[in-house]
């Protein structure tokens, strides 16, 4: 039968996730001659991610593009995908999130969150934008660093000696300009849109962590759908996310070129520095999320 889906996500119009969401709606409509349609609620119009999760669980909302941080704060098993140095470049991220090991993480979602995971979308590897000079990981020590407040990131940046400071997204640019923080970590796409280079002295590409997004469906809604529709939706979501992933990874060289043309240096973390950091991180997180060992193994092959 005909159905109108509602999809919610937190990012504003124009973000690559939003383009993917709109494309998903168009593709579904085209594939079913208008039987299945979709309305996209962007910019958190239906509430923040916890509120959207609640609506997904009750069945008020059909689908969501929810960041791994939100799912990871509920399920440590999922948080493993945010762990540092699983992969070390955006092209590897693009391969990694489509690997069966990453898809398999979704198996715990129905039981732990009442939702069904259909696939990952991505943002690029995160970098540190700093108002003091940085060349190596050791320089991060003592920095006041604005981070995405997911527990994995907090542990990671704390282990580097930074003082993680959670600051709400709309205030980040100010906080940096005002010297409330010495630096911030974010993906390059968001950083370019926000022009963080204008309030920084140096960009350090950490090549450590990335923030993927999961395309999830309400468990209640999923149960009510005929098998053929489920199959069609799964297939359409996969192909939409494939496009999003490839485009994002493909755009990264251009973004880096943009930043290289900015008057501040953009540097890479020397690869040798990371072994001790990984060991310290895994000591805490392997017991919470044993799947991390497997993810590291897979990541190393990419």
């Amino acid at each position: 039968q005909a159905k109108e889906f509602r999809l919610g996500l937190i990012t504003p119009n124009g973000h690559s996730w939003n383009k993917a969401a709109l494309k998903l709606g168009d593709d579904l409509k085209a594939a079913t001659n208008g039987r299945l349609t979709m309305t996209v609620f962007h910019s958190g119009q239906l509430g923040n991610e916890p509120a959207m999760m609640q609506q997904l669980q009750s069945g008020a909302l059909d689908m969501g593009f929810i960041q791994a941080a939100e799912l990871g704060s509920r399920v440590p098993h999922i948080a493993a995908i945010n762990a540092p140095y699983i992969v070390r470049s955006t092209p590897s991220v693009a391969k990694f999130v489509r690997h069966p090991a990453a898809i398999k993480l979704f198996e715990v979602l129905p039981q732990e969150t009442g939702t069904i995971g259909l696939g990952w979308g991505i943002t690029g590897m995160r970098a540190i934008f700093s108002s003091k000079d940085l060349t190596t990981l050791a320089d991060i020590k003592g920095m006041k660093l604005r981070i995405n407040p997911t527990p994995v990131y907090r542990d990671f940046y704390s282990s580097l000696g930074a003082a993680p400071t959670p600051i709400p997204t709309p205030q980040v640019f100010d906080a940096m300009a005002n010297g409330q923080v010495d630096g911030l970590e974010a993906d390059l796409e968001f950083s370019w849109n926000q022009r963080f280079d204008k309030v920084s002295k140096v960009i350090l590409q950490m090549n450590a962590v990335f923030m993927p997004m999961a395309a999830i469906v309400s468990g209640r809604v999923w149960q009510s759908l005929p098998a053929a529709d489920r199959e069609l939706i799964t297939k359409t979501v996969k192909s939409t996310l494939d496009t999003q992933i490839d485009e994002l990874a493909g755009n990264e060289p251009k973004l880096i070129e943009n930043f290289k043309n900015a008057p501040i240096p953009i540097r890479q973390v020397p690869a040798g520095d990371t072994e001790a950091v990984i060991a310290e991180f895994d000591k805490v997180w392997l017991p919470k999320a044993p799947v991390l060992a497997e993810l590291r193994k897979v990541g190393a092959t990419l």
Partner: peptide, 21 residues
């Protein structure tokens, strides 16, 4: 409760205080 009713309210915690929401 979560398994029976899809209500995950009592399993959630806040992000930085880590209190049950």
């Amino acid at each position: 409760l979560a398994a029976e009713t899809f209500n995950f309210l009592y399993t959630e915690r806040t992000q930085t205080l880590n209190w049950p929401t």
